[in-house]
Amino acid sequence: MNKEIEHKFISEFEQHQNIIHKVCRIYTTNQEAHNDLFQEITIQLWKAYPKFRGDSKLSTWMYRIGLNTAITLYRKSKRSVQTQDFESVLHKIEATNYDNTEEEQLKLMYKAIHQLSDIEKALIFLYLEDKNYKEIAETLGISEVNARVKMNRIKTRLKTILNP
């Protein structure tokens, strides 16, 4: 593939890379797995880039391929078990910004999210990213009604975890 396309892709990707970091954050729990998944999604985006026509926004396209890679193509690396918990690292860094109860609540929330199924994670991720139900339904290939029903169930579940 020619250098011009490569340069265009890398520049655009560099600007939007946080989307992929966020997908990795939902689907992995340590830095090594995060990097692994990030790398695989980057490869998939690059492979699909020549077919990207620009009829949807680049970010929408990245959400879709990012989630698809995490849910369908990626196999969890066995190495990831031994490394330090990514969640706890992040919490240590930012702990000072929160009062204790809020921090505890968030910790519980993120823990609960990591226990959700891959599909549920995709739903909650798209919710956190402020996507509307139409976009969520289109990304996952389900109906809008079902996306709404499922989302409400997940929200209720998360709330019950915090207020048993």
Binding site: Q17, K22, T42, L106, L128, K155, L158
Partner: peptide, 28 residues
């Protein structure tokens, strides 16, 4: 609680260590 989560999520979005142009080049 979910609003709290969303707020935290957005706040952290800006904190990811950025991957450089060269690193992306290597990755692809």
């Amino acid at each position: 609680e979910l609003d709290l989560l969303k707020k935290d999520w957005k706040k952290r979005s800006a904190d990811y260590p950025q991957v450089s142009y060269n690193e992306i080049y290597k990755m692809i």
